[in-house]
């Protein structure tokens, strides 16, 4: 049973195929409006999320399907002590596909090992968030038209930012990209990502604490939020949360065709004044998230023989 737990579960060809379908959905949404008629998506969200859950639900509704599920652990049987494995087996009786978010790393993999229907990892703690990566890839595909020879700046929390790790992993499979890692020392990209991904694939990268210094070179600026929920120590969170705040003045030396991405939600790391800049594409990015999830649901249900 094909599931999506890690972005590396999909080959470059499979990702290309998803992008083609997503672009076709954008061009002609009506063609897809009944493709999942009578099918059910279970959204099992053991951790709060607005964007990811709603984009999955919107995706399924726009494919003509239905949605069931829960949006916090307190309203599920896990509050009574049910295991992830049992939840997955039980939901397999009621739905055709699962989208799961869980605060513990590896929970969606446990679900996929026990479910008889496809499982999509909708975020497992600070570990993986492959549909955000697919969203990011569709955004780059539509806004830049290519995945190679790009100068990509990642700014903010590069330590706990799972979207950053996954996107670096995905972009490392394409030629000629250069990565700029902008973060305070405490939130640097973990060594294992540098060693296992960037070094192993000979990706050129530089680490710096200054966003201003690298801004003129960037084709893509990927901003991230410093996530309160990833810190065991509140004081450290408060000390680091406002380190990088993107305001219009900081974009003076940036390229005209730069794109500014952010997985959202933002707190204050991007000023609302930047929203008016045509280079800000984070709300379009959120929209693309729905289309790529539609393409993903279709792919997994087709491979499962459900549609």
């Amino acid at each position: 049973m094909k599931s999506l737990i890690d972005i590396l579960d999909f080959t470059v060809e499979e990702i290309d195929e998803l992008l083609v379908v997503a672009n076709d959905i954008i061009a002609d949404p009506k063609k897809y409006s009944e493709m999942c008629k009578g099918k059910k998506l279970a959204t099992l969200f053991f951790e709060p999320s607005t964007r990811t859950r709603l984009s999955f639900e919107a995706a399924m509704y726009e494919l003509g399907g239905n949605v069931l599920g829960f949006s916090e652990a307190a309203s599920s049987s896990s509050a009574k002590g049910e295991s992830v494995a049992d939840t997955a087996k039980m939901i397999s009786c009621y739905a055709d596909i699962i989208a799961m978010r869980h605060p513990k790393e590896g929970a969606p993999l446990v679900a996929a090992m026990n479910a008889s229907i496809p499982v999509i990892n909708a975020g497992d703690g600070g570990h993986n968030h492959p549909t955000q990566t697919l969203t990011d890839l569709l955004t780059i595909n539509r806004e830049k038209g290519r995945f190679d020879n790009l100068k990509i700046g990642f700014c903010g929390d590069l330590k706990f930012g799972r979207t950053v790790h996954s996107l670096i992993n995905a972009m490392s499979r394409y030629e000629g990209n250069k990565v700029y890692l902008v973060s305070p020392t405490e939130l640097k990209l973990p060594d294992y990502v540098k060693k296992d991904v960037l070094d192993k694939k000979n990706i050129e990268y530089i680490e710096t604490q200054s966003l201003d210094e690298v801004m003129p070179e960037l084709d893509i600026l990927y901003m991230t939020r410093v996530q309160r929920e990833r810190f065991f120590n509140e004081e450290e969170y408060l000390r680091l949360k406002d380190r990088y705040i993107l305001v219009p003045e900081k974009l003076t030396n940036a390229k005209e065709d730069l794109i500014i991405m952010h997985p959202l939600p933002r707190v204050n790391e991007i000023s609302v004044k930047v929203d008016e800049d045509k280079r800000a594409c984070y709300f379009r990015q959120a929209l693309y998230g729905k289309y790529i999830r539609m393409a993903l649901i279709l792919k997994l249900l087709k491979e499962a023989g459900t549609i």
Binding site: S83, V84, A85, H102, K104, E105, V110, D124, H127
Partner: peptide, 13 residues
């Protein structure tokens, strides 16, 4: 030994 891993809360895994 990762306290964030699912194995830290599901003893039978």
């Amino acid at each position: 030994k990762n306290p964030r891993c699912i194995t830290s809360v599901e003893q039978e895994l």
